[in-house]
Write a protein that binds this DNA or RNA. Structure first.
Lengths: 201, 201
DNA sequence: TTGGAATATTAACATTGTTAAGTAAATTTG
DNA sequence: CAAATTTACTTAACAATGTTAATATTCCAA
């Protein structure tokens, strides 16, 4: 449907420009120049709109990571994945919120019984890279499940603290936010990379 | 004031039992058996209530960490800090959300111009422990600012993914959630501990 | 007792998500 | 071509929300 896309575009525009709580059905309807009830012909309720937007977010993130496949060294690829993750989150805080922070899309997901396909496959790619790092001796061998969870949690922690303004006292200058996060990622990568250990300490 | 406390208790009760979006001024008023407008005599608006609750959360977390001072070994103390952080978050997801995830309290904080005192001092304690770990050779020497940020981000990432239900596909059994997070923390601690490196790989 | 401050309530406003009922146009069916 | 039905959309309304203005009640000092 054409109008579905109109609604989603308008919703994201409002979401980006006015924030989550200012996305209302009536404002969406105004933007697309239809009556508010028309929205309900294309989406069951407001949460379903957010669910759809969250889905689009994963596609965007996937595009963002297209270059990654060309990186041969798995540890370098892991590092770049992390950097991309940080950048994606900081450049698209609204999408990021829907994908990884807000409660609404997940409730819809459970209600609809559908699967978190795009989220899962993103994690699968992470885990494949982590496993490759273990096989090739860049990371200590062990449970790749746990290691992937750890890597993801680390970068998610940085992004979610940053976009929810919990780092403002920590890093006062807003322009230093992403650089500090990248430094933090470097610290992390240096610590988990076992090939670097003869140089350290 | 007595009634201020009544309002805060009622708000948190609603928050814990019915979730964030079901905390309404009218429900609060019902619980304390006053009229809705009375609430506005003690709080400027709803966000100020959430700001106060977020403050109480930090006090709770501080009590939660009382035992830590007795741990001499700084790396062990850091590990225990991490474990406590995970447990506090999982046992008090509502408080945790206010403290570290939700946007409302921070907006109020900026608006009121007041400082995030309890949050700051919690971070200061983390940083002191990290510095001590560096001095005593448990962690690679470097910028303790960045290392603290990294540690915090890591545990925050775990907790916030867990309580916002992003780990449900990763860890299907809910009872395995905290154990998996603790495993992840162990992995992290093992990786950053430079005294462990001769055993590894 | 009276007057004013402190405390509380009633009534209302605008805004929200959502639904029921109705309309007008397009399409199918006879 | 006319009648019936489906499609696409709107109007009007409901209950719930945060919040405010105006009003009432209580309480205590002069």
């Amino acid at each position: 449907m054409e109008i579905r896309k109109l609604i989603l575009d308008a919703s994201m525009k409002l979401f980006v420009e006015e924030g989550f709580e200012n996305v209302t059905i009536r404002k969406i309807a105004d933007l697309i120049e239809y009556s508010p009830t028309t929205v309900y012909l294309y989406f069951k309720d407001k949460d379903e709109i957010f669910y759809s937007l969250h889905d689009i977010g994963f596609q965007k993130m996937h595009e963002f990571n297209h270059q990654l496949d060309s990186i041969q060294n798995p540890l370098l690829r892991l590092h770049k994945m992390g950097e991309n993750y940080l950048r994606f989150g900081m450049e698209n805080p609204e999408y990021y919120s829907l994908m990884f922070i807000n409660g609404e899309p997940m409730k819809k997901l459970i209600e609809l019984g559908c699967d978190w396909t795009l989220g899962d496959s993103a994690l699968a790619r992470l885990r494949a890279t982590v496993s490759e790092c273990m096989e090739k001796g860049y990371l200590a061998k062990g449970d790749s499940y746990i290691a992937s969870l750890s890597v993801w949690s680390f970068v998610h922690g940085l992004v979610s603290l940053a976009i929810r303004q919990r780092l403002e006292k920590f890093i006062s200058d807003e322009k230093m936010l992403l650089p500090a996060m990248e430094q933090s990622l470097n610290w992390f990568m240096n610590n988990i990379d076992i090939t670097e250990r003869r140089n350290a300490g």
